[in-house]
Design a protein around this nucleic acid. Structure first.
Lengths: 345, 345
DNA sequence: TTGTAAGCGTTATCAC
DNA sequence: GTGATAACGCTTACAA
């Protein structure tokens, strides 16, 4: 900046003003400054600027459990988009579902002077996210609700979505229905609750041996599903709390050749091409991020109008994918056999 | 910090030293300072620190084309992981494949004093990424090579992967093979080149009417594939340059009941469950991010040892997914029919 | 072992 | 319309 000032033959103060478009500076001076800045490839140092302005940083911290998961990366995109509209930057952090790491990250982030946090809490304690420990730093939780702390959050209608999907199974005549889901997560519990409520409403008793909530990955889901389908009196349909479990269930059903209907949370690629009837609960992960960011920016602007923990619940919708018609063998196999032979290594 | 100093009864300087673990400070003083800091929930301001240190910021900028795409989000995760190991923060930015936006973002990022950039270039001009315009700010390109500028990059073996996958198709006896891919991207061009080379090596002529490079999304891919399959002399196999095109091709093949073998870049969920033989080129997107970040950190540390544009090419591997056996109709349909009836809304 | 002075790159304030 | 001064929160040199 000093150099720009020298080159334009003015003081640093004038450079500062000119660059920010302060109308106080005369057009002639301004253009000289702009030219000098351009020549020198000068970019004002935003950190110094923030320091002086006591306006922490123009950044917000985003903390997610697993960026590799499309759900969270779409959410992250939503946050980025809204932040970018406001000229703010997003610092992303991955916790790998580890609360301890989450705590460290959040602590660290405060030192980076982020102006606020959007967090997908890993589960477990959340006291490090409370306004108390963060002394006033705005926090918005995404996808999972606050527990024990009072902050804003944006959720999915897990309960309602699960209810509707379960209804579809019942409407198709199923009465013996199993449940597969990942462990622990709040969302999973809500979905189970929705599932149970609907069954109860329809006077169907939930057989607890058909409820399996310990499958995080497809492989685990597949074996859990296979176990259920191998029972003497197997379920005729399965509700899966997420796509990992749905895909596992599908594999198991195909492997065991069981004729099972599925319903699940999370739309996924090729869901409509399965050889099973499938109802899927859809939603927009990016919108969660957008709304969370808006909530945060709102806090940043307006102070805290609606006092405490606002809660936004985003709707879900259910789509039915009818079972794909299996092509008759004669039709499709002919050329396949020829086109497939060796080729492995 | 002033408050901490007051509370601990020492000078700010001592607080600074104590907090950074300077051995010069006596244990007694240190613990008093630490206690005071703890009480006050004090976190040193890293921006002020960086400012003083003239060590720009401890942040790196990550610029990707589409964070919602798992490929890029996994890449982003790789960058985040390596950066986090070094205590650095990552600022993510999404260009939505718009070079103009990319240019703005990169410009902006320099103002934020990022110490370096990992960029997945959107395509088009790259001069805003050159060392010249960024005056020395280290840049690493990911997934796409530099053109016209001299910077480090981490690439995938697009060419080799495509070659191998194409070989698999030929090994299975296919001689009339089509190509489907997205437009423009360098990676897509490389894959096409690999495809062509192998065909040429095997004395198979490429029918240019079977080469379609304009499908970005599944729907477009599906109709392009349908067109090819509807030709009087249709291809018996299709090579798809990415998973979008592969999925579109699969849909088209199923819809038209054509018996077609597929090969494609990108592994995807359920790829092994298709009713078609499929060879898939696999790779690790996260590793691209990790390597890119390492390259960048290396520049940050060591100055520039190997002078100019290092290029890392990551390997790919090919997996064959044999065609799924289609269950005989009688076996699976029975209960399906009953379990599926109404249920739509 | 601890404190003092100065400055990192900016901008608000108040003169000129 | 423009410039000097001080300060944002921190750390390096140098002194005590």
């Amino acid at each position: 900046m000093r150099e720009v000032a020298a080159r334009a033959g003015v003081s640093m103060m004038t450079v500062s003003r000119a660059l920010r478009g302060d109308p106080q500076v005369s057009p002639r001076t301004r253009s000289r400054v702009l030219a000098a800045a351009e020549d020198l490839q000068y970019r004002p140092n935003r950190m110094a600027r923030s320091l002086r302005l006591r306006h922490p940083s123009g950044t917000i911290g985003l903390v997610v459990t697993n960026l590799a998961n499309p759900f969270y990366s779409q959410l992250a995109l939503g946050v980025e988009i809204v932040a970018a509209e406001r000229g703010m930057k997003v610092i992303v952090n991955n916790t790998a579902d580890d609360v301890e790491r989450e705590r460290e990250i959040v602590n660290d982030l405060t030192g980076w002077q982020v102006e606020g946090l959007v967090v997908v809490p890993a589960g477990g304690s959340q006291d490090h996210l409370g306004p108390a420990r963060l002394n006033g730093l705005p926090v918005v939780l995404a996808a999972r609700p606050p527990v024990g702390i009072d902050v804003d959050c944006v959720l999915l209608d897990d309960f309602g979505g699960a209810q509707e999907a379960t209804r579809r199974l019942l409407a198709s005549g199923h009465r013996r229905v199993g449940f597969l889901g990942p462990p622990a997560a709040w969302t999973s519990a809500e979905r189970l609750r929705g599932f149970r409520t609907v069954l109860a409403d329809h006077g169907v008793e939930v057989d607890e041996t058909l409820v399996r909530c310990d499958q995080r990955e497809v492989a685990a889901a597949e074996s859990a599903a296979a176990e259920l389908l191998g029972l003497p009196d197997p379920p005729t349909a399965l509700f899966c709390a997420n796509s990992r479990n749905a895909i596992g269930a599908y594999r198991a059903a195909r492997r065991t050749r069981a004729a099972t209907a599925l319903a699940c949370f999370d739309d996924f690629e090729l869901a409509d091409m399965l050889e099973l009837p499938l109802s899927v609960v859809r939603y927009d992960p990016e919108e969660i991020g957008r709304q969370a960011a808006r909530l945060l920016l709102d806090r940043l602007d307006g102070g805290k109008p609606g006092r405490a923990g606002r809660r936004i619940v985003l709707p879900t919708s259910v789509v039915d994918y009818p079972e794909r018609t299996v092509p008759r063998a004669g039709e499709t196999m002919a050329r396949h056999d020829r086109s497939r032979s060796a080729a492995d290594s």
